[in-house]
Write a protein that binds this DNA or RNA. Structure first.
Lengths: 347, 347
DNA sequence: TCAATCGATTCAACCGTTAGGATGACGTTA
DNA sequence: TAACGTCATCCTAACGGTTGAATCGATTGA
């Protein structure tokens, strides 16, 4: 009997109704009577029928699929994808599945002409963008896509005049919490490692949280204590800390804009024989899985990736359905570990 | 001019040929003359035309898409996906992109009825399966899919009578290399943490590599030194090591079947005041990114995820094209770090 | 009793490609 | 000059659903 795959016509023949009724019944259209619907559904799973996604999509002009674009700095090593984004990836995947959408994955270089892949191919109904990096690099591509009606949400900071919508965690509050915590520990001169320009909006806001906390404590941020780390990699963190040391400005704490930067910084400190946390307290941002396994374990800011993934997906789906949406800031949580126990000379 | 999206008919009108010629020209069919092909292609990218994937797929009955299924133990925490598989994910994604295929992601519970999603929906041309875990749990589902003509490759050990094809690294050789290395360091009693039953074939082979190395050194494996760790998680590793301690059998080295298990074991050792590597040498398997950041850095076996991803994808594509393929074993490399420097009491 | 009404179902067009066979112009050969 | 093969292109039928409009039998109100 199962010569090929079952089509809706097969079900129609089997139940003695027309194919269009089958189609309607299976999608729970109110236009078909309860009784025939039941019969049709029974026949459908007796024949092990599945709607052909391609046919369905072609006719209804949407794909039931979301695309996830993960941007990386072009210099980043293939094997070391930022663990934070991998974690996001997991939660996004799950969120999509729960909502009946498929997820198309793709890693992109910022430079690549990726928008063409999603322009009119109808591969995806919407796009989720993930990745730190210079926002300007994809701004106009996003704009083009938006003009064609492609919806997108981006993980990251809220920006003026953006062609898309962003969902992000409260980077400002996170930065503030970290800096306040370091000051609480008795640190007086807290360095900031991470780009403080507006090209990396997340880092920018973390930086502002940091300066706000200093201000609250009556301290003016010393520009000499801020070092650019253009990308979120261990190497960038290592270099940034070396730069800081070269400047010969005293510091007793380091707030790295990401955990990976913090890891690099800690390695540089170790290489210079500087003890963490006894001489210098260190804190990061992201709470990637390896943060708790470092030596000493890293104080950082936890971003709720599960909530983040769900929010991204839900927001995108709302956009696609043309429902009103708004930019959202997700709460963060300070996770204190040993790397920041500055006063612990006795412990 | 651009009222909606451009179709092949628009190009046909513009260039004064029939739509079918357009279709052929764009796919470089030898049936159209060089000159018209050029004209058509020019018009195509002037109109910013993209073939509609859905229409194309529907007609040609394939999807240009591969699906990646990542299996997790049902107990695993949402946020802690095995980093090794995440790394594989990255390389698979890239390999697909390079070959012009899209990648559909999906995380699955072993128990879920996932095969239905891919049965006749034509969502994907083939499936890549990733994940440690009890193979028997998905064996029959694979069999069903295979019967319907769905191709699949699996990352893992080669097994008898499997309905799919597997690509895996040489777990036996890796296990042997680790054990030999530990013996080289002067260890006499090497424990093995990880399921040694055939339900977890990768672990099984690593275990056999381990016993082979012992044998070569004239040592008979002591069953008391083998502890099951049913899943590849830190917690399982912690528990396994505690079990080992309860047995009160002496040991001076631990070979964990995966890095995550090793991490858990190291934490348990630390909790019991046992020094690594001075009192007990530790080694893992996988070389996940955090392995080098542990304290002490973890000796482990590096699996070439880039090669692995490419091989998986290429093999699957060969299967889809009905080309002959064969199971392959990928080489592994021992990565020695401090955790196994057993003789380093002086260093 | 007849037309209007209503729910349930069928008809048929359409989504944008692909691909096999037909067409027609042109040059070659008997 | 008629028959024939070639080459480039065109015609047309799918592919498997979705959806607005048409149909049909049965009920209802006048």
């Amino acid at each position: 009997m199962p010569k090929g795959k079952a089509t809706s016509f097969d079900i129609a023949h089997l139940t003695g109704v027309s194919q269009s009724t089958v189609s309607r019944a299976l999608r729970d259209s109110p236009l078909v009577s309860e009784e025939t619907r039941q019969r049709i559904k029974a026949a459908a799973d007796q024949l092990n029928y599945k709607v052909d996604k391609n046919a369905s999509n072609l006719r209804s002009q949407h794909s039931g699929t979301l695309a996830l674009l993960l941007f990386e700095d072009p210099t980043a090593d293939d094997s070391h994808i930022n663990p934070f984004f991998l974690s996001m990836l997991g939660s996004i995947t799950r969120a999509c599945a729960l909502r009946g959408y498929d997820l198309l994955m793709s890693f992109q270089q910022l430079s690549y002409d990726w928008h063409a892949d999603y322009a009119d191919t109808k591969k995806a109904d919407g796009i989720i963008l993930l990745g730190y990096g210079d926002y300007l690099a994809y701004r106009d591509k996003l704009q083009k896509l938006a003009a064609q009606g492609m919806r997108s949400v981006r993980w990251g900071a809220v920006l003026p005049d953006q062609p898309d919508l962003s969902i992000g965690c409260d980077n400002f509050q996170g930065g503030q919490a970290i800096a306040a915590h370091l000051l609480d520990q008795g640190c007086k001169r807290v360095a900031f490692l991470g780009d403080a320009s507006s090209h990396y909006p997340e880092f920018f806001e973390r930086y502002h949280g940091y300066t706000a906390a200093l201000e609250q404590a009556g301290i003016v941020a010393d520009p000499a204590l801020q070092v650019d780390a253009a990308e979120s990699t261990e190497q960038a963190g290592y270099n940034a800390l070396e730069t800081l040391l070269v400047r010969k400005v005293p510091f007793d704490a380091v707030f790295a804009a990401s955990d990976l930067i913090a890891i690099g910084a800690m390695r540089a400190l170790a290489d210079h024989g500087i003890k963490v946390p006894e001489q210098v307290a260190v804190a990061g941002f992201d709470d990637i899985p390896m943060a708790r396994f470092l030596n000493p374990p890293l104080t950082t800011v936890l971003q709720d990736t599960k909530l983040a993934g769900e929010t991204l997906v839900d927001t995108l789906l709302q956009l696609i359905r043309n429902e009103p949406v708004e930019t959202r800031l997700l709460p963060v949580r300070l996770v204190v570990r040993r790397s920041s126990q500055f006063g612990s000379r006795q412990a």
